[in-house]
Amino acid sequence: MDGATLTGSTFTLTTGAAATPVQGTVIYGNSKAYFTPSTPLASNSSFTATISTGAKSTMGMALAAKLTWTFTTGTTVAAAAPVSLGTAGTYVILAKTGISTVPTSAITGNLGVSPAAASYITGFSLIADSTNVFSTSPQVTGKVYAADYAVPTPTNLTTAVSDMGTAFTDAAGRAPSVAELGAGNIGGMTLAPGVYKWGTSLLIPTDVTLSGSATDVWIFQIAQNLTVSSAARILLTGGALPKNVFWQVSGLVDVGTTAHCEGVVLSQTAVTLHTGATINGRLLAQTAVSLDGNTVVQPAQ
């Protein structure tokens, strides 16, 4: 399908005999369209989803007739689904404009930059592979990819960057279960699974614990910046996994000296890790990632 034609006007949801519209957002990625309601759907209620003939294929062909289906919600709250990263999940660090390091960092997983060229990956002493599809680095246990490498790397990176944007939109569109916790300061707290939303910046000055099981999901929606103070740690207990923790940040991400983070960082701007900071997760930035003697390890799947 042509993703540009799958919008809030062509993909709609209504409820009840009066067909009351349900407010929400529509995103398209990984060959799927997703409708995320602005607030959780009422339990034990009937809903009707409709895709109109305004939806078209990539060749510009409209649906011959509108597609409609109904469903009824249950009476229990299901666990939140993880944010799908698509092919962006094949990288531990993915950025659009560059990745830099002050040696020596230790990175486990693949690096990628696009549309920037390999010259914008600095401090890694890159060694080009004979195929020119990727390069390697003494600081990276994995491969390094850039937009100016040989095919199929440019196309793969374009898709991954697109998937990164889709994941950001997905995470931002989830209905929050908690808003403005701690007035933007959650130092010392233990947080249950859920979707947490702040209309301002978020500060983590001291250790924060995420307590839950291996299937639980945390999504943190931050309208401005995320700052993790020096030596502060994000801790996981009860079997919680970093692959199920998502930090959706519309501003800058700044992780202080020797701080430790867990989870997938989805930043609309830049990510900076200061000296000795570590993360068990992924850094997916829509501008640049800056490292300074850091350890970055991709989470187990």
Rank of each mutant, 00 (worst) to 15 (best):
T36H: 05
N132S: 05
G165W: 10
L85D: 01
G188H: 12
P138A: 01
H260N: 09
N294L: 08
S177T: 13
L85S: 00
V245H: 01
T104M: 09
F71A: 05
G276N: 01
L203T: 10
L126G: 08
S52D: 04
Q224H: 05
L284Y: 10
T36M: 11
A49G: 01
V245D: 02
A106E: 15
P154V: 10
A49I: 01
A288R: 14
V296Y: 03
S105Y: 08
T269H: 03
A78I: 01
G187T: 08
P103E: 15
T14G: 09
A64D: 12
A78F: 07
T257C: 01
Y120W: 06
T227W: 08
G281T: 10
A49T: 00
V217D: 06
S43D: 13
S130P: 11
G109D: 06
P21C: 02
L235G: 11
A62D: 10
A214Y: 02
V83W: 03
N294S: 13
N30F: 02
P154D: 15
A19W: 03
I219M: 13
A277E: 06
G281C: 08
L210S: 03
V77H: 02
R174N: 01
A80P: 11
G187A: 09
I222G: 02
V26K: 01
S213M: 04
Q268T: 06
D292L: 00
T206D: 11
L226G: 09
Q298M: 11
I121L: 14
T227S: 13
N30T: 02
H274P: 00
V178R: 12
D170Y: 07
A88C: 07
A33D: 03
T73N: 01
Q298L: 07
K66W: 10
I279H: 02
Q23T: 14
P115M: 08
L236A: 06
T70F: 12
I204C: 06
V255N: 07
V144I: 04
K56E: 07
G3N: 01
G212W: 02
W218A: 06
Y120M: 12
G184I: 03
A128H: 12
S229L: 10
G187F: 04
P193N: 09
E262T: 13
I219D: 06
G29V: 04
L284S: 04
S114Y: 15
G24W: 03
V26G: 02
L41D: 00
T101G: 15
A81M: 11
W218D: 05
L94F: 08
Q224W: 00
Y120D: 14
A81D: 11
F71C: 02
N30H: 10
P82Q: 08
V144Y: 05
A231L: 13
I99M: 15
V92Q: 07
S162H: 15
T159W: 12
L13S: 13
W218P: 10
A175M: 00
T7R: 03
S114I: 10
G165Q: 15
D170V: 11
G123D: 04
N280P: 07
S201R: 10
V140F: 11
G16E: 13
A231C: 09
Q248A: 14
F168Y: 14
D163G: 12
N225S: 11
I93C: 06
V102C: 14
T101I: 15
G173T: 09
G109I: 05
V271E: 07
A78T: 04
S162P: 14
